[in-house]
């Protein structure tokens, strides 16, 4: 990684970190924390779906595992919340590896992979909803006990900075993946798995590594969700809403790019808030907007918002010939 790779991430992180000094409204901070948690999980999806081309429709399986592991460790075993966070992340990696091992080894690709991930998330949801260990349908309530050891802080801004730190770390991780040998192999598998294999890429190993990383990052976001909102149940943690959120953000923002998930999550939830302002009484209005934006993005902006911006920039420089566009796309 060069300085050019790191500077944009550092600048954005510093700017975002200064926000709570200007904005004190707790509504705005809540919005930002939630959006950042979504973008963190979405970054997890992006590692597997964006770089690896394996579209998961069930990332709730990882999100929920992170949320439940941290909540159960803390409630039932009194484990320190920070240790719980680390264990939840590890649990996400493990679940990712197992799901990946089962489905990639059977050669599931494309729609079949999407379906099997969806089914795994559903199985987890039904189990968490039925077992007494997970609090059943009543869910789990983490006690309000404001201590840094519990990941609970007097000031909302501290949690915001914490989430921001994790988002920044995963942005760096994603940038590293993009520049590493592993990332190149992953993209090769996405573009043409058979060709990658023929060149000696161990595609199973590469995909397993990607899904484990992806599961870990998304589990981390689930863990932060549980620690911030202090309540989870099966329909929140393993619900299809979160699977959809995590896949929408990168696709709207720019699939397979470093900043895509963050841009997508901010755009979607920004639009959602605007829609709610205009038509607050109508339930589901923000989701209508999400669905509409998804269809439009697929129809008109395959590279998401970042892809659109890039095309505009290229057009500004007067280099819209087909060849350069392809090159700039591949080099991204």
């Amino acid at each position: 990684m060069t300085a050019r790779d790191l500077i944009p991430i550092a600048v954005l992180a510093v700017l975002a970190a200064l926000l709570p000094l200007v904005v004190t409204s707790s509504t705005v901070l809540n919005f930002l924390v939630f959006t950042l948690i979504v973008s963190l999980g979405a970054q997890g999806w992006n590692i597997l779906g964006g770089f690896g081309g394996q579209f998961s429709f069930g990332h709730a399986a990882f999100f929920g595992t992170g949320a439940y592991v941290t909540a159960i460790l803390q409630l039932r075993y009194g484990v320190n919340a920070w240790a719980g966070l680390a264990l939840a992340t590890a649990a996400g990696a493990l679940v990712g590896w197992v799901i990946g091992f089962l489905s990639f080894r059977s050669g599931l690709r494309g729609s079949y992979f999407a379906l099997v991930t969806l089914a795994f998330a559903e199985v987890f949801r039904i189990l968490a909803n039925a077992a007494s260990f997970t609090g059943g349908a009543a869910g789990l309530l983490i006690k309000l006990d404001v201590r840094p050891a519990n990941l609970q802080f007097d000031d909302r801004a501290v949690f915001y900075w914490l989430v921001l730190a994790f988002v920044t770390a995963t942005l760096l991780l994603t940038r590293w993946i993009q520049r590493s040998r592993f990332g190149a192999q992953l993209v090769a598998v996405r573009e043409n798995e058979d060709a990658a294999k023929a060149l000696g890429v161990d595609s199973l190993k590469v995909k397993l590594r990607a899904i484990a990383l992806s599961g870990a990052v998304t589990a981390l976001s689930g863990c932060l969700y549980a620690q911030y909102f202090l309540y989870i149940d099966a329909n929140i943690a393993y619900g299809s809403w979160i699977s959809v959120e995590l896949l929408l953000a990168p696709i709207i923002g720019g699939v397979g790019t470093v900043f895509g998930p963050v841009v997508g999550a901010l755009t979607l939830h920004g639009l959602g808030e605007v829609a709610k302002q205009f038509a607050g009484r109508i339930p589901g209005i923000d989701l209508i907007v999400f669905g509409g934006v998804l269809v439009l993005a697929v129809a008109f902006a395959r590279g998401g918002i970042l892809g659109l911006l890039e095309r505009l920039r290229d057009r500004g420089r007067g280099m819209v010939t087909r060849g350069t566009k392809e090159v700039s796309h591949a080099g991204r």
Partner: peptide
Amino acid sequence: LLVTLGLSIV
């Protein structure tokens, strides 16, 4: 897949 998913959400 994505377009039909978007349609179903809408």
